[in-house]
Design a protein around this nucleic acid. Structure first.
Lengths: 215, 215
DNA sequence: GTCTATACGGAGATAGAC
DNA sequence: GTCTATCTCCGTATAGAC
């Protein structure tokens, strides 16, 4: 009798608000796509984890590409931005001469170390999307450009000896490359702390004495 | 009539030596898995590209994991090794005090820039295999260790001021991370030269004056 | 908003003929 | 060594009931 009731309970249709469901779908899809890639995940997998049917899921995402769109557009770049850093009140961020760029990168790495699932998702999607046929190809192919545009819109506090735009652009490129590399390394053995590993890169990318008062 | 003959021609069974077929399978699978990942590729896809049936392919690889085994074991580490560098006759490689480690890394990057397909394959597999359920998980998880073992078996020509094992190990780790990051960047826009990009990392990872006579 | 039912195709794997 | 045939299961997507 108790058992029957449990079964009925489990099958009962639960009607959630669209925002709640979308949140659930996002969480489930992030975990699953991080694990098996876009091509490796089925709508049924995601639906099962959310607790709805596959047809019910399609009501939200229209088709499989819509699910990917949800993942790509709505997560990664909404937190950990330079604006978030500035708003964090970190001493390096609120300096009267402008926020510290190395300080922001430290902030970003520390933040990313708390969301390994998301890092894994973006590592996997970033790798599969190298092929031009992948539905997220354009998004990832343009990331270096869009990140540069985002970063170069900020009035960072930079050492005067950093003259050319080219020099700082290369520094940004190398920082992103080092971070991507560290994030790949993060899932291997022996385990490392990405915060510590980034500190080593910071030392060589933003060396003394030039950057001593600008970190 | 001519058409019929063409059809017959196309369907004619061609019996190749195992080595030739395996080579074809390797080439096809590399391209396809690089593009869509392990989960995204079907045995049928590979069989089509080789020009045999799916059952014919299974004769060679036994099951899908066997195909992955072929890819992982038989390609990446068979060329571009420190031994190949030493045998290349490069001036930095045949120095009487031992081969140059930065010189080897330059050699490796230059070599990798000629085999982008393979780099893409390993980037994709390396990303998907972060999940513990992936059949190549152990191989990629252990790569930092096995690469370190390979590199530390060589009597490199190192600056005397590099004292501890720890110091050189961190340098190796950072070099691998930077390379992985550059390789991710390689498939994005604007296009970059991984050789040039590595030269920038070499400057900061192996700086003057310490490394001046050891590059 | 969520379900069931269904259409239609593709997946991996095996058996056995040639 | 390679094929055809077949098994069994899973994939996306749509229609329509509730």
């Amino acid at each position: 009798m108790a058992e029957q009731q449990i079964v009925r309970e489990a099958r009962k249709r639960v009607r959630l608000t669209p925002a709640q469901r979308t949140e659930q779908i996002l969480t489930a899809a992030t975990r699953l796509v991080a694990r098996k890639g876009y091509y490796g995940v089925s709508l049924q997998d995601v639906a099962d984890e959310v607790g709805i049917t596959q047809a019910g899921l399609l009501h939200y995402v229209r088709n499989k590409e819509g699910l990917l769109g949800l993942l790509v557009e709505q997560q990664y770049d909404r937190a950990g931005t330079p604006q978030d850093y500035i708003a964090s009140g970190d001493p390096g961020a609120v300096h009267p001469d402008g926020p510290s760029f190395p300080g922001y990168l430290r902030y970003l790495v520390a933040f990313n170390s708390t969301r390994a699932h998301l890092i894994q998702l973006y590592m996997v999607l970033g790798a599969e999307s190298a092929s031009e046929q992948h539905p997220a190809h354009a998004y990832f192919a343009d990331r270096p450009t869009s990140v540069w545009e985002l970063y170069s819109s900020i009035a960072w506090r930079l050492p005067p000896s950093i003259g050319s735009f080219d020099e700082i652009r290369h520094l940004v490129e190398m920082s992103l490359e080092a971070m991507d590399g560290i994030q790949v390394r993060m899932f291997r053995r022996p385990a490392i702390s990405i915060v510590e590993e980034w500190a080593r890169f910071e030392q060589v990318l933003f060396p003394s004495p030039v950057w001593d008062d600008y970190r």
